[in-house]
Design a protein around this nucleic acid. Structure first.
Lengths: 112, 112
DNA sequence: ATCTATACTTTTTAGTTCTAGGTATATATT
DNA sequence: AATATATACCTAGAACTAAAAAGTATAGAT
């Protein structure tokens, strides 16, 4: 008892973050802009979504953080480590599964 | 104030229900099985998800309910009305938008 | 007699995401 | 000089969904 699964469609913000960080290290504010960009404006996640996810991924050992001073401002750059790559693969697999399922439902005339 | 948007990935259970009911009238228990079937087991929504959604859609005027007695058991058949068809179109459009956005993010090498 | 499948329902809990605020520095504008 | 905008971080609280769990009841199979 007490063992609950996360909502079946969740984890997309996380998936997007991990996918971007797989390509190169980035900082939070940069990720906010990047997500809007790569999704063609389709998805827009505010800082209030991004930062908490970054922190929880770091706590969970999926991300490594590195502070860097640039132009007097401090940036926190995040990069994937092994655990993060595993997690990315898992989330990506789940997404493809769900996405395929929904597509099937939408396309199927579903009759003889 | 007080005006909040729904989570950007939500509404998939609703979308699936509406899509199935667009094809023919069905009852709750039937929908539970049908969703598993048409999504190729990718998505499995329990009765605790289906019934509340059906009720709220009915209250909102998107669905019409019709009770029917079959073999001593009572079934509540639901069918789409105009409002439901509009809602289906909107949700489907949203889904396609988000789905495309995520796909773009997953596929993009995103560099020069 | 018991178990499984059908059929509906509601309550509680868990979890994510959204909004809205807050701090602070640098640069551009008026 | 003052103000506005962009950068960059952070968090608390609210809103909302969906999951789990349990409950009622009938029919049919073992």
């Amino acid at each position: 008892m007490g063992q609950t699964n996360p909502p079946f469609m969740s984890g997309v913000p996380e998936l997007l973050l991990l996918r971007l960080l797989e390509q190169r290290e980035m900082y939070g504010y940069e990720l906010v802009k990047a997500i809007k960009l790569v999704t063609g404006e389709a998805i827009s996640l505010g800082e209030g979504v991004i930062y908490p996810v970054l922190h929880s991924l770091e706590r969970g050992g999926a991300l490594k953080a590195r502070r860097k001073k640039v132009d007097g401002r401090t940036r926190v750059y995040y990069s994937l480590n092994a655990k993060g790559r595993t997690r990315l693969e898992r989330l990506q697999g789940e997404w493809v599964r769900v996405q395929s399922g929904v597509s099937a439902a939408l396309e199927a005339p579903a009759n003889a």
